[in-house]
Write a protein that binds this DNA or RNA. Structure first.
Lengths: 193, 193
DNA sequence: CCGTCCGGAGAACGAGCGTTCTCCCTTACC
DNA sequence: GGTAAGGGAGAACGCTCGTTCTCCGGACGG
């Protein structure tokens, strides 16, 4: 087995276990068992558990944002793209094994004691906010709206994780529609539209 | 020192440490050092760490909801009371040592492995949702609105915890006002008001 | 066929921690 | 004053886990 394949298998196992059980609840032995990569190789690839956690969060950040963007791309209308974010959330929440947002969970677990985790969580949320700001800008809408949509999306992730998935994304989407309409009425660039 | 005072001191220490650092990062020795209550007494009061965690979350749930309700009570207008929730969030976020929502953080840390923590988090969020539903009902507004406000409040807590406090509560309040106006326009009980 | 190197399996080590135990001191009662 | 009960300090125990080490087998070069 070559280096790259082993790395992928380790990160696959890490993602499944860290996301599903929490970071501290998963030992390096668990990663080894699930990935089939020996401890020696594991430590050649990632010198410490902390590095592995960092790599897990980084890779998941890229794939999470890519998946979101790919879904949003399927919609051409700038305002529809904003709503599409919440459609995608609904789809994500319904995936088997959904257990809330990996960064919110990691931050709750280790934000106070691990600079790595705190930084990764901040970077991810900043990137998500920037993405929403891009969407609202493309629709000629304010950055304020993006901030409000961020709150709705974060609230939906948390609530779906803790209280369960039923209806949460739809609620968030309905609220997003209202905020979007309200912002469109006051749209700075084309108020008459 | 009598039993009750020792219990209070232990719970005070537990709250400060568990909330500030996370549950797994705090040992029973840390609780003992900060509270000044010996290990023997500590285990007489709480048979296991799990019980202590449960008591911490229960007591904090009561005081958190009491503090919120006390602030909301100061406002007589039913719609003003709804907005007052977000005023109180702003005040809470600004407290020194604010580190997000204790239940969201605990759930992220232990929701997957501890039934105690998962249950406490669900109970707390259910109680908060019920409270918001009471406020919207008092204003003659729909339960749907309460669900949307819950998402905003949860999103604000998470975002304030991870990205920092600046402006988050004000954003949430602005969004809440818009949703409230929109719901008031469609108010089922007194649509003309 | 023999030696050498690489990687795997898992034992070993050391630290941290939940929980219990030991020892000693204080206090209260006869 | 003697004694028993209770509580405090902290050592001890057993377990988990991150990390490293040891040993062995198998592949490859001479």
């Amino acid at each position: 087995m070559d280096q790259g394949a082993a790395r992928d298998q380790v990160l696959d196992a890490a993602e499944e276990l860290f996301y599903g059980r929490g970071i501290q609840a998963v030992g390096m032995d668990d990663i080894r068992s699930l990935s089939g990569v020996s401890l020696k190789r594991l430590y050649q690839l990632f010198a410490t558990k902390d590095r592995l956690v960092e790599a897990y969060l980084e890779r998941r950040d890229l794939s999470w944002r890519r998946r979101l963007a790919e879904h949003v791309e399927t919609c051409a209308d700038p305002e529809g793209r904003i709503i599409a974010v919440f459609d995608w959330l609904e789809r994500w929440f319904a995936e088997p094994g959904f257990r809330g947002c990996a960064w919110i969970n990691s931050f709750g677990e280790l934000g106070a004691t691990s600079a790595t985790v705190a930084t990764q969580a901040r970077l991810h949320k900043l990137a998500f906010r920037r993405y929403l700001e891009g969407l609202t800008a493309d629709a000629g809408l304010s950055r304020e709206l993006a901030g409000q949509l961020l709150l709705l999306a974060e609230g939906a992730m948390v609530t779906a994780g803790i209280l369960g998935v039923t209806g949460t994304a739809a609620q968030a989407r309905a609220a997003a529609r209202l905020l979007l309409e309200s912002a469109a009425r006051a749209r700075p660039t084309s108020p008459a539209e």
